[in-house]
Design a protein around this nucleic acid. Structure first.
Lengths: 243, 243
DNA sequence: TATTATTGTATCATTATGTTACAATAGTAA
DNA sequence: TTACTATTGTAACATAATGATACAATAATA
């Protein structure tokens, strides 16, 4: 779904879009020691869904995914990767979209392109929670963060898509060094460890974690952070961007 | 491309297929200490291409990929995984397909569905070279193995697709334990090490490799293999399938 | 029976990771 | 100022994983 939905509704053939192909984006954020994802709520239907969209005939598929991310968060230059193509026939279920359209007073013809079978390319993004500005599209009343362990009921197979995105994130967290994308520019070692523990859902050994992170040579020590607590102030680190 | 190409050619609208979506399969085999991939050669055009196909409207996308693999190799129950979606607009180039059709005496209308832009889901498969029976489709004169380091000139972005598949294979070789899929059911430790060295393109330490593999508890020692060489006979191992 | 090439594994060295401990604070309260 | 507390940074040692070398155990052959 995107801001151009009105046009999409009006034109039953879907001119200007790649047919049968969609994008679903699992946009991760980290706040209050919880992993969260951005979800849209649809007017009068009680349905929740991942941000998504379609591909214009002049766009690369990856470009379209960046556009979706920009439209829902206002962010560019964000970590964004494909992780799986959801192409089962059983995904096809016109009912939710009909309900959404009906709630808006639209009765689409049976052969409306949006009611056809879609294959969806799954993307996951890692964003700085404090920088993102959740923005609903034209047919949803809200775009908000939901904790992964307290999700509302989701449309179609969106629950599965989130599950698979999380698995990908867990695997790639250790391989590629992508966790930093979920934090603010500056962070303490404790914050970084909290993030890792939340994503991996297990306790890590503090001394070993710190030693490992520092040994990677990807962290720059910026300054001390005086939190007001009655204890030694932690250092603030910053991820060193490679040139 | 697949055996139903004749039907596909005849029907300019592409009825019965998902529009604009294709599958490209990088089918890896291992022979003569070389990694090889299956390629098709097209009649009278000098063009080489990856095995591929389209998705029937009654098929899951993954199912369609299995069908392609079966049609080109005769194999089922094979390691097969998605690795990337190739969706750049710049991929669109009707020329090769026109050439192929022209070589067959067909002049498609400009709006023929096969000449439109396609997004392709990349799959990679690992097969036992000795078991696969390379089989051309209806419009290619050959289906054969080509060594990765001696590939012919390939259609469109198929070179890039192979490159990306190889990267995926290298990353997953250590994570998941998938190398065995490229060997016969029984193999020696030396053969396994050769496979790893070929894929990773680097020498491995024999003692450490053997110790690591045995410690994983995934190998069953079957018997000795008397090769006729004037030296100690190696053991033959078999991958233990988990239940 | 000696010779040769290769395999399986033991041994030690090096590196990485798990675990414990402790000094160095930054605040609070006496 | 001075104890007291909680947390951080890191040293120190233990354990595990990997790298490197060495050598005994063979299958064939001469």
């Amino acid at each position: 779904m995107n801001n151009e939905f009105k046009n999409q509704e009006a034109d039953a053939r879907g001119d200007g879009y790649l047919p049968g192909l969609a994008i679903d984006a699992v946009i991760f954020g980290f706040h209050d020691n919880q992993l969260k994802v951005l979800l849209l709520a649809y007017k009068n239907t009680g349905l929740f869904a991942l941000p998504g969209g379609f591909i214009r005939d002049y766009e690369d598929v990856n470009e379209a995914a960046r556009r979706v991310l920009l439209d829902r968060t206002g962010l560019t230059n964000i970590f964004l990767d494909q992780f799986y193509v959801f192409g089962d026939r059983s995904r096809h279920d016109a009912a939710p979209l009909k309900a959404i359209m009906a709630a808006r007073g639209v009765m689409p013809p049976e052969n409306h392109w949006l009611l056809k079978r879609f294959v969806s390319v799954g993307y996951y993004a890692l964003v700085d929670f404090t920088k993102a500005i959740p923005t609903p599209d034209s047919i949803s009343d809200s775009c908000d963060w939901y904790a992964l362990d307290d999700l509302p009921v989701l449309m179609q197979d969106h629950q599965l898509i989130i599950q698979k995105a999380l698995e990908t994130l867990r695997i790639n967290l250790d391989q590629k060094l992508i966790g930093f994308n979920l934090l603010t520019e500056d962070f303490t070692m404790g914050e970084l460890q909290n993030l890792y523990e939340t994503i991996l859902n297990k306790k890590l050994i503090r001394a070993a974690f710190q030693r490992k992170m520092l040994s990677l040579g990807i962290l720059e020590r910026i300054a001390k952070k005086f939190t007001g607590g009655a204890h030694k102030a932690p250092y603030v680190y910053r991820f060193i961007l490679e040139k």
